[in-house]
Design a protein around this nucleic acid. Structure first.
Ligand SMILES: [Zn+2]
Ligand SMILES: [Zn+2]
Ligand SMILES: [Zn+2]
Ligand SMILES: [Zn+2]
Lengths: 152, 152
DNA sequence: ATAATTTATGTTATGTTATAACATTACAAT
DNA sequence: ATTGTAATGTTATAACATAACATAAATTAT
């Protein structure tokens, strides 16, 4: 993620809080911690990295299910996304704006960008219709090199 | 994969043999076995399923590295694809036609279809260009329900 | 031919990612 | 008080993948 400003970050966290409040979703301490670890990182985060960080924050060892449960909650509600191609998790900066996001992932510096434009979404939708297929979720992950890294 | 005819299957296997021959790629016994297991299955196959089948075929236990090496070879040369969203492998029915394939995967019956049309490819390419991004590989996996399964 | 090199496979162990299963806690509803 | 429900804790293990090193088979150079 091309580094987000502090205000964008705060706004996103606030939006998630609002969504949870108005939908009576329990944004518990652990879920909040996991969300903040993910959203504050400008690179995709791995589950066991989160596990380490959570353990440090709380000064006691956490266990995989704790982290994976929090991740599940966050994904279910559209606050984070999983990047299947690299088994990592990223925060969503427009939660609930749409169900899925598409990503560009730089193999060199590991930075990612969302790229969920409508024309792309439409094209995928048309492809599905053309194949008589009803979409429930889409994984689109484009790996390669970002501008900076391709110039070096 | 909407079940391929025997002739299509034979043709694809033959094409892979030809490509290997003309490019001096060693299509060894194990590699061929793994390829045939994957291509003959109309559903995505998991690495450890392949491991079991290989062990049975050869009447002696095989080990994970053997299978993963064969898979690596087949992917590198475009004969099979990995579906990252379900950690499974599928055969390619038009090897070398293009570097990547896009997929529709039915969550219910597990059958998959390739859907690598040019308009979709173009759209992805344009999205990358628009973001100053140089693509090296693309994962597009659309999960949902096929016609049959959505009618039930 | 044979030695050197390269390519592929065998084998053991381990690393990494993710979930099953069951116990406990906290808090709300009856 | 009792029951229900949602979340978390805990232990163990399943599922997916690779590192590291040994051996064998095929190529190539001498
Ligand atoms: Zn998003
Ligand atoms: Zn980069
Ligand atoms: Zn293909
Ligand atoms: Zn189906």
């Amino acid at each position: 993620m091309k580094s987000k400003s502090t205000s964008e970050l705060k706004a996103t966290i606030h939006k998630v809080e609002e969504i949870c409040k108005s939908n009576k979703l329990g944004l518990t301490e652990i879920r909040r911690q996991v969300f903040e670890i993910i959203i504050k990182n400008n690179k995709p985060v791995k589950a066991y990295e989160i596990l380490d960080k959570i353990s440090n924050i709380n000064n006691k060892p956490s266990h995989p299910p704790t982290v994976y449960r929090a991740i599940d909650f966050l994904i279910e509600n559209g606050f984070v996304h999983k990047l299947n191609s690299i088994n990592s998790f990223v925060g969503c900066f427009h939660p609930k704006a749409h169900k899925e996001c598409y990503f560009l992932i730089c193999k060199k510096c590991n930075i990612y960008q969302e790229c969920c434009d409508d024309s792309l979404k439409d094209r995928i939708s048309k492809t599905a219709i053309h194949n008589n297929f009803v979409i429930s979720n889409t994984t689109l992950e484009i790996e390669g090199h970002c501008l900076d890294c391709s110039q070096k």
